[in-house]
């Protein structure tokens, strides 16, 4: 530090005392916005999830666990939760398989131009929004979409293949929607891992596979874990992909929350669905972090 800043310090703190009140007030407007736009609504929803459903009235009345019981005793809803977890797990797996190599290439490339191009190539699709990217997948995968038309022209198939409204279609679009989060998270972690470790392993005779899986992957485990977690949480809550590419019979949790809240207008049940979704995400997050911590030590 130079002498200027040491001289300025006492004066700075004296001035701060003068403006203490307005300074402390600076975050208040935004805190109010979050309080009224998010926190109070969440509290009200918690209340609704314990209310008795009355089709004639939306006022929350009574105190019951009926809504949660309905969810866990009805095999239909349990299956929806199961499918949601399954789809989220598969999406996370594919995002890891594609995202780790992509981030590895970004962080190990020697060309700054390629690096910038690839980073922008992952950020820009992210900012385009889900609606546009889902539209892209529908253009590709529809019965008369680009993929089927190409297969027909090339005489690979005689009739269009059903790709839409399958698990494959949902996974393709979900992976594309969430992959940028994975790549960006991983790339910033990979950048901090010194290439010297891999070189040392290579010098000592380790084949690249061994160096990658025994040295690089364990070193970057915290980043891989947080990237995986982010993708998992976001896919548990996915809306557009299951609705549009999964079709009306591919039920997942987020679309069901919407349906119950807006179409059926059963708020107590919608509220409990939303909390089950949040709680399931939370439990799986905690369990997976405990398991991974046992395997790889503290993160």
């Amino acid at each position: 530090m130079t002498s200027v800043s040491t001289m300025a310090m006492p004066s700075g703190s004296r001035t701060r005392r003068h403006v203490k009140l307005p300074f402390g007030a600076l975050p208040i407007p935004s805190l109010l916005l979050v309080a009224f736009g998010l926190i109070l609504p969440l509290l009200l929803m918690a209340r609704y999830s314990l209310a008795v459903y009355n089709p004639a009235d939306i006022i929350a009345e009574g105190l019951t666990l009926e809504n949660y019981l309905k969810f866990f005793t009805d095999p239909f809803y349990r299956e929806v939760l199961g499918r949601t977890v399954w789809v989220a797990a598969l999406t996370t797996l594919f995002c890891l398989v594609l995202g780790i190599p992509a981030a590895y290439v970004i962080s190990r490339t020697k060309s700054p131009v390629l690096r910038t191009v690839l980073i922008l190539g992952s950020i820009i699709p992210l900012l385009m929004g889900n609606a546009v990217r889902v539209a892209g997948w529908m253009v590709l995968l529809a019965d008369r979409g680009l993929v089927n038309e190409t297969l027909l022209v090339l005489n690979v198939v005689d009739a269009p293949v059903r790709i839409m409204y399958t698990l494959t279609a949902v996974l393709l679009s979900l992976v594309a929607v969430l992959l940028p989060f994975m790549i960006i998270t991983l790339q910033s972690v990979f950048d901090r891992i010194d290439g010297a470790y891999e070189e040392a392993a290579a010098t000592l005779g380790a084949p690249p596979w061994t160096a990658f899986f025994r040295i690089f992957v364990p070193l970057s485990m915290p980043g891989i874990f947080s990237g995986g977690l982010l993708v998992f949480i976001l896919s548990m809550n996915a809306y557009a992909s299951p609705v549009l590419l999964g079709g009306p019979t591919f039920h997942m949790m987020a679309p069901m929350v919407y349906e119950q809240a807006v179409k059926v207008f059963n708020w107590p049940f919608a509220a409990s669905l939303a909390f089950v979704l949040m709680f399931a995400t939370l439990v799986l997050t905690v369990v997976s972090s405990v398991v991974l911590q046992k395997k790889y030590g503290r993160m």
Partner: peptide, 27 residues
Amino acid sequence: GDKIFHIAIIGLAALAFLELIVPLASV
């Protein structure tokens, strides 16, 4: 082994970027 490793990594990375770009390009 080095070669196969690099091809696998670059191949998967290419697949990742295709997955991101192809839907936008097609639309």
